[in-house]
Nucleic acid binder design. Structure first.
Lengths: 343, 343
DNA sequence: TTCTCTACTGTGAACGCTCACAGAAGCGCC
DNA sequence: GGCGCTTCTGTGAGCGTTCACAGTAGAGAA
């Protein structure tokens, strides 16, 4: 009989204990643990029973030491963190990645690199092989960390197309341009002709692509382009409010606004309200993200839903594939127009 | 000269390489790595130089294998995750813990235990010693995971006082009762006498304590208690809205409401607005949390600020102390009344 | 029979580190 | 000189696993 798998909390059982218990050798237990190839059914059975009886759990440190793999992956955020942690999409992403990895029994290490110091420390940590791969969230271009990791050959999947890097880095992104096109087309279909836009930061792929989609549709529809209808924000609520004020000043006849994020759209609504413009009667407002902010604001925002659940799942899938030796890949996922009260 | 600490990305340098490079033994390098006791200044110097030259980074797996420590800690969330991930406080907490741990060079493993299956797997993972300690976020009582971990002797710090468990588990919490007292006293000081409350779930410490604070102050002020003024919610926006409707029905003469969370308070504002009550003229509304929702809503919410930055820092401090062998501890941190437009 | 092939099993050696121990060197004190 | 003490250093062992290799046994083919 085995002793104490519940009571005496001394040393945890090792592969050796399991082997003795099952009447086989370490090697056989190890083989069972790693897929069970070249193991007789009877041995298989005996080992599994022994594992259950002893409460054995593999020591990942010992395993990692010899395999060189760490069997864990990092979730790296290289941004001023306040902004991201306030972004509901970020949370969906983080949760989705954690869950998707958990399904593969891979723990996720959360790493924040806000300051230059942290950046250095974390890069060292990663390149030292403490994680097998990295899920990177860093919208801005020219991120030195991404470049370093890529050069060091660390498997890497970015969320959103990294602007600065070459094509040899994997990424998963929603189809920003197409989403923007859908929204602007929707605004035009309502009969609006003075359609403005509040862009995101133009050193982010999202900012650039959404603006491009906006311009494309207007030009295809033969609507006159007017630079006074284009103002920039930084995805924050406050910047949306400021942008809307600028927009009203530059183009008082604006009758619709495509805002590149829901958070900014909230700010836009506030500014419009203060200016006495009714939404959607006077000005139709379209957001982007379908964040909780979209339903929280009044009127509820028509917006573009990004498939964050699929994005996180795809990021994990691509990263695991890359760790498994496959080549980098880019995945673009479709967006969806969600119509609510603001248009 | 050393070869390839940047170019040839073969095997990372080991403690052996550093020792050879520095002209000392493995033991001396190890001692330098672990605090530098019993090491001569000259050796110290030589080793540090060699580390810099070779780009050596300690292999934590090898270290963990022998020390038995994993030098990582888990952040465990045992809740239906949607709710928590949408809670801005949760994000501040997660970020704070990650940063506080990073300062100690300890990586944080994010673990979500939503389903029964995940719960089992994660409990196994933790009790197998893959993390040195756990930061637990689980507001509801009777959490089996917490109990199991406690029994297994895993160092544990909860966020908020765990109701079900004995006193032998550490926790860090804001002073809910005192915060509630401050808010209700504030409402009374405005001359309100029909002060209602929307409570949180009453199987959470926050829910219970905040209600207790509310009752204490009313009774101390000699204001007549009235059960029609007390309704319950579940911290969600929607539940706040429903609660406010019930409240208006049961006690139409209500002139102030203490709501146990900002999110619920948003719902309360919506319901009051719909019912044609002005805030704060007809009904003063006080929230709890000082979340972004507090400034996002209009009118901006008077609320109670919980010191989440300090809470996370204290959780980490207490956990590291407990891992270091100290006894469990409870830390209660003061809250702060933030006055805005809703009162 | 003998040889080969397949399916399975056991046995050292690592992996990179820390720990315990044994020593060496220096110093002061009897 | 002998002894003890402190400070410093090197060495072997071993943490729990996987991997490469060397077997063993049984089946089928020559």
């Amino acid at each position: 009989m085995t002793m104490s798998n519940t009571g005496g909390r001394r040393k945890p059982p090792t592969i050796h204990d399991v082997a003795r218990e099952a009447g086989v050798s370490r090697g056989t237990v190890s083989r069972v643990l790693n897929g069970g190839h070249y193991v007789s059914p009877s041995a298989q059975e005996a080992v599994n029973a022994a594992i259950r009886r002893t409460g054995y759990v593999v020591n990942r440190h010992a395993r990692s030491l010899i395999t060189g793999r760490s069997d864990s992956i990092g979730f790296l955020l290289t941004e001023p963190q306040e902004r991201f942690f306030e972004d509901p999409n970020f949370n969906v992403l983080l949760r989705g990645c954690t869950q998707a990895l958990a399904a593969h029994d891979v723990p996720l290490l959360l790493m924040l690199a806000g300051t230059e110091d942290e950046r250095r420390r974390i890069t060292r940590y990663i390149t030292a092989g403490h994680v097998d791969g990295v899920l990177l969230v860093s919208s801005h271009s020219g991120d030195p960390v991404a470049e370093e990791l890529r050069e060091a050959g660390v498997p890497l999947v970015a969320c959103g197309k990294p602007i600065g890097l070459g094509s040899r880095v994997s990424y998963v992104a929603a189809d920003d341009r197409d989403g923007a096109r859908d929204m602007v087309a929707h605004l035009l279909s309502l009969g609006r002709r003075r359609v403005g836009t509040v862009t995101g930061p133009l050193d982010t792929p999202g900012g650039v692509e959404r603006l491009a989609g906006y311009r494309e549709v207007l030009s295809e529809a033969g609507v006159e382009a007017d630079d006074r209808l284009v103002v920039s924000g930084d995805y924050s609520r406050a910047s949306g409010e400021a942008a809307a004020e600028r927009l009203l000043e530059q183009a008082p006849d604006v009758d619709a606004v495509f805002v590149a994020s829901d958070l900014m759209a909230q700010g836009v609504l506030t500014a419009l309200h203060r200016a006495g413009r009714r939404v959607p009667e006077d000005v139709a407002v379209g957001g982007f993200d379908d964040s909780p902010a979209a339903t929280a604001s009044s009127p509820a925002l028509t917006t573009i839903r990004q498939p964050w659940d699929r994005i996180s799942a795809e990021m994990v899938r691509v990263l695991l594939a890359e760790i498994g030796g496959e080549d980098p890949a880019a995945v673009i996922l479709p967006t969806e127009l969600v119509r609510r009260e603001s248009t």
